[in-house]
Every structure is written in structure tokens, then in C-alpha cells.
Write a protein that binds this DNA or RNA. Structure first.
Length: 504
RNA sequence: GGUACCUUGGCCGAGUGGCUAGGCACCGGUCUGCAAAACCGAUCACGGCGGUUCGAAUCCGCCAGGUACCUCCA
């Protein structure tokens, strides 16, 4: 047990001894105790978006999941370098040689410069992340800004004999690599079987085998995003950016690599192969993958066309949405499930989250106003430990939330005068709620009447004051008329002991 | 076809051998001129069949259903 002084100059008790973070490592398919390579420093790399379209609910999942991990690692006292990349080159429409770069295609369709497309969607992505209260990473490197590093990385793989050049392109030799190392260890794939089933090459490709993947591709004449390399004017393969940028900023070996489950193969598998082939050793210690968000039981994805963008959530402008949902509701919705489970989206589920979140935040606000008594009649001790234990168990945020809801009952009882709480318990409870709700889960009270101006608010107050007078005169007809009309306009009127409250 | 995973109450979603998470909805109550909101309380469960065990939602087997990856997808 230790004491320390927190930012608000209060003495806080923390039991560091019990805190042992365990995380599920996709490599071992087990939960493992997290031991950093170079404590107190922790290196973490997460695959960010390919910026050729608006972010959707699926993009929010890894961003929020690894935001929680980022926040928790900092809370545990680590010095974290969090790298989340922006893919703005090399991500092709498909694996065929004719596959068009996603950014370039969007630029062609919209008649824009590719970097104009990139900037536009990066800005929008940042805006959405900020609304979701996702902390910015320490470094956000662009693939297009690290072409030199990627060329050098390809050269290393060539020098080590695990790649070959063909018609100006460079491909990774999976079969050769697999003789020394294990291609498929992350996704559980068997190279022999893959070779068996794909041996019939059509002869159109420069690749020797279909399992081989591009490290560098020669640009076709119409391909506008191109750079000069020893092999050709071209561009790097999709998987190359993460190997090059990850090791550049976090070193040849680093702690955590995260991303969506759908990236496990081929993206992360290829990344492991590239880094191992170039550096001769495993780069990443813990691989973490968040599960998908589904819609009617099916994965929400661009290729399926069943995705809902974050902006559509925030505005409610989508046929499947019955209303707008605030960024915090979306965040809370995602945190109500453990990150390795699928979450099925529905308007009903979002509505449930919205109400639950609202109750939690109102309870938190109520807690801050509570006054203490001589003794506690409610048992509130142990909340910090229980929540920390849940976080340490592979970031089990739904359990953290359930503990907070349990304590909410005590808070409400005290607030109603049906129970009492001592000063020391109250200080602790406030501290724990602040820590978990604000700092770790990253939930914040949203400004309810954003955009409203003073005159408008005063007009509503005026109407409700007239209603109050009518009520005092027992003129129920008038008072109900005002209330009903305002309710019909979308206002929520609450009568309180001394007057009223309202919100939209 | 190959590989992996999943199936919990009206809905969402935790839980890896015994002590019925939690949220939302519904129901009952408190409060209120009546409501709303808020608060309190109660009910409802582990896909099917078999096995291991004193005891299984939890372990094993079979069956049924579903999803993901094997092209690009967070």
C-alpha cells in the first residue's frame, strides 16, 4: 500500500502490489501477464485508418480499445509511446497486379490530388476521435512520409535473401522464409496447405507463388503515386509501412501491436514475416486484436456496404438509426462489451446504452455534491480494487462499469437521505469515480444544449416560470398546456421541489 | 473445402467447476395536482443430447445453428 498526492492535492491510497495487468496475446492464444521489455517504457503500435473515406463504427472500436489500454498503462505508471499510423499509400483495392491504390482511386473519382483526399479524411478522422474523447497518440506517422525507411527495409529483406525482384517489383519469398521461420504462426495458417491449394498460378503475375506478397510494386504508367527506388519507380506494399514505421519509432523489439481481428491475416502475418526477415528476430511481444462490430449478426464493413459512419451516428442521419447518438453514447456502447467479443449494433442496444450512461453520469454528478456524515451505513470500500482488478483482467471494461453501477445505488441512497457516508469514504468514492469514469474509461458529461444561446434559454425559462405561476394558482389547464406543447417540441420538463429543470 | 471462434433471460452483455454480474425494457412501490424525471424493489437464463464430477453456463464428446478469415476491410 502506498500514498501519493494526486493533482488535486489529495492524499490517495493505491495498492500497487495487486496490480498485475494480463492481456490476451493472439500469438499464444492465452492471457499473459504484461511485462514490458524496457520498463518503465512501453511501446505500442496500432494500425490506424486508410484515409479514403469517413470513419465508421468499426473504426471506433480499435481506437477506443487501445485508447483504454493507453490510459491504463499510463495510470499504472508506465511511460508509453503510442504510435498509430495513417495509411495513405500502398493499400490496394485487391491483390491483383491491376489493383488500384485506394487513395489514388478516390482522388481520381473526386478529381483531387491524392494528398488532398488524405488531408480531408485525416481531418475528419481526427475530429471524430476528439468527439469520442480518444486521446491522440504520441506519434501518428503517415506511410507516404516514410518511403525512404520502407525502401531501406525492403533492401534489408533482399539482402537477407527472403525476397526477390521481378519486373521492377519486389516480392517476399514466403516458401523460403517458412523454411527458417514460421509463416502463419499468428493466424494459425499452414503454408504447405496454402501452397497446395494455390499452386496453379495463372502465369499473369510477376510473383513466383500466389502466397508471396509485394514489398515494392512497380508503378504502371497511369499510377500517379510513385517514388524512386533501386528497383523501379513505384510504391511500397501495404504491409511494409507498419514494419518500417513501427521499428523506426519503437525499436527492433517492442511491447504491443494492436489492430482489428480482420487484419490478422494477411496484414499482421506479413508484417511479422517482414520484420523477422529483415531483423532476424521477433519484433512484437504482445499482439492484441479487437473483435468486429456486427450489424444483424454480420460484420460491419466497407466491402459489405452495411457500415454506418460516425458522423451519421452523431447526426442520426441513417435509415437504420431511429435517432442521433452522442459520441459518449457510442463510446459507452463499445465499452459495455469486452474488446475481444463481437458487438451487435442495433438502435435498441444504443438506446439502452444511452439511458445507462445518462444514469451513470447523473449519479456521478450527484456524488460530487454529496455531504459526509460521521459514519458510513453503506459499504463502499474495495471499489477501487475491484475496478482495477477488472481492468487488469484483459481490460474487462463491462465489469468495471457494473461495479460503478453497484456503487451508484449507495450514492443514490445517500443522496436521498436514506443512508450516510463518512468523510473518508466519500473522498475515496469521489476519487475512484473520477479515476475510472473520467481518466480511464474516458467518459465525460456532454454539454446538453450545445449551440443554444442565452436569449433562447431565457425564453424557455420565461415560459416555464409562467407555468409555475399557473401551477401555484392551481390552473392545471394552463400548466399542462405549456408542458405538453414543449414536450411535443422535444423538450424534457422535470418538476423539482423548488421549480423546474429542462433539457432538449 | 481449410482454419479459428461463437450460441446466456424480452433486448444488450459479463462470467472457465459450487456463492444466481451489470445495463435497458417490463412489473410493483416512493415522490407528484396528474404526469414526466428521479429513486427503491421484484421477476425472467445459460442452443440440443450424452459424458466426467459430490456438484457444470463453466471441462470432454457428438449434433444443430451462426460468424470471421482464407481477395480489400478496424
Amino acid at each position: 500500500m502506498y500514498f501519493f498526492i494526486d493533482l488535486t492535492c489529495k492524499v490517495v491510497l493505491v495498492n500497487y502490489n495487486k496490480m498485475k495487468l494480463t492481456i490476451y496475446n493472439t500469438l499464444s492464444r492465452k492471457k499473459e501477464v504484461f511485462v514490458p521489455l524496457h520498463a518503465p517504457n512501453v511501446g505500442m503500435y496500432v494500425c490506424g485508418p486508410t484515409v479514403y473515406g469517413d470513419g465508421h463504427l468499426g473504426h471506433a472500436r480499435p481506437a477506443i480499445t487501445f485508447d483504454i489500454l493507453f490510459r491504463f498503462l499510463i495510470h499504472l505508471g508506465y511511460k508509453v509511446r503510442y504510435v498509430r499510423n495513417i495509411t495513405d499509400v500502398g493499400h490496394l483495392e485487391n491483390d491483383a497486379d491491376s489493383g488500384e491504390d485506394k487513395i489514388a482511386k478516390k482522388a481520381r473519382l473526386d478529381q483531387l490530388e491524392p494528398m488532398e483526399v488524405v488531408q480531408y479524411y485525416v481531418n475528419r478522422y481526427h475530429k471524430a476521435m476528439e468527439m469520442l474523447n480518444v486521446l491522440p497518440p504520441s506519434i501518428e506517422p503517415h506511410a507516404s512520409g516514410h518511403i525512404m525507411e520502407q525502401i531501406e527495409f525492403v533492401q534489408k529483406i533482399l539482402d537477407n535473401g527472403f525476397a526477390y525482384e521481378s519486373e521492377g517489383s519486389v516480392y517476399f519469398d514466403v516458401e523460403k522464409y517458412n523454411k527458417t521461420y514460421n509463416y502463419g504462426k499468428l493466424s494459425g495458417r499452414n503454408v504447405e496447405e496454402m501452397l497446395e491449394s494455390t499452386r496453379n498460378l495463372d502465369g499473369q503475375s510477376d510473383k513466383r507463388r500466389s502466397v508471396d506478397f509485394a514489398l515494392w510494386k512497380k508503378a504502371s504508367p497511369e499510377h500517379i503515386m510513385r517514388w524512386k527506388a533501386p528497383w523501379s519507380q513505384g510504391f511500397p506494399g501495404w504491409h511494409m509501412e507498419c514494419s518500417a514505421m513501427g521499428t523506426k519509432y519503437l525499436g527492433a523489439e517492442f511491447d504491443i501491436h494492436g489492430g482489428g481481428m480482420d487484419l490478422m491475416f494477411p496484414h499482421h502475418e506479413c508484417e511479422i514475416a517482414q520484420s523477422t526477415a529483415a531483423l532476424g528476430k521477433e519484433t512484437v511481444k504482445y499482439w492484441m486484436h479487437n473483435n468486429m462490430i456486427t450489424i444483424n449478426g454480420q460484420k460491419m464493413g466497407k466491402s459489405l456496404g452495411n457500415f454506418i459512419t460516425l458522423e451519421e451516428f452523431f447526426t442520426g442521419n441513417h435509415p437504420l438509426l431511429t435517432q442521433a447518438f452522442s459520441p459518449m453514447t457510442v463510446r459507452f456502447f463499445i465499452l459495455q462489451a469486452q474488446y475481444r467479443s463481437t458487438v451487435d449494433f442495433s438502435s435498441e442496444a444504443l438506446q439502452a446504452s444511452e439511458k445507462g450512461l445518462s444514469r451513470l453520469m447523473e449519479g456521478y454528478t450527484r456524488l460530487l455534491k454529496l455531504t459526509s456524515a460521521a459514519t458510513s451505513t453503506e459499504e463502499t470500500a474495495g471499489l477501487r480494487e475491484k475496478c482495477e482488478e477488472a481492468m487488469c483482467d484483459d481490460l474487462n471494461t463491462p465489469i468495471v462499469i457494473s461495479h460503478l453501477f453497484d456503487s451508484l445505488k449507495s450514492i443514490n441512497l445517500v443522496s436521498d437521505g436514506k443512508a450516510t457516508i463518512s468523510e473518508i469514504d466519500l473522498v475515496e468514492l469521489k476519487s475512484v469515480f473520477k479515476l475510472f469514469i473520467e481518466n480511464l474509461l474516458g467518459l465525460k458529461v456532454e454539454n446538453e444544449s450545445a449551440g443554444g444561446n442565452e436569449a433562447y434559454k431565457k425564453a424557455i425559462d420565461l415560459l416555464l416560470n409562467m407555468r409555475l405561476e399557473a401551477k401555484q394558482n392551481k390552473d392545471w389547464a394552463t400548466s399542462d398546456k405549456i408542458r405538453n406543447e414543449l414536450t411535443a417540441l422535444g423538450f424534457e420538463i422535470k418538476d423539482t421541489k423548488d421549480g423546474f429543470e429542462w433539457k432538449i
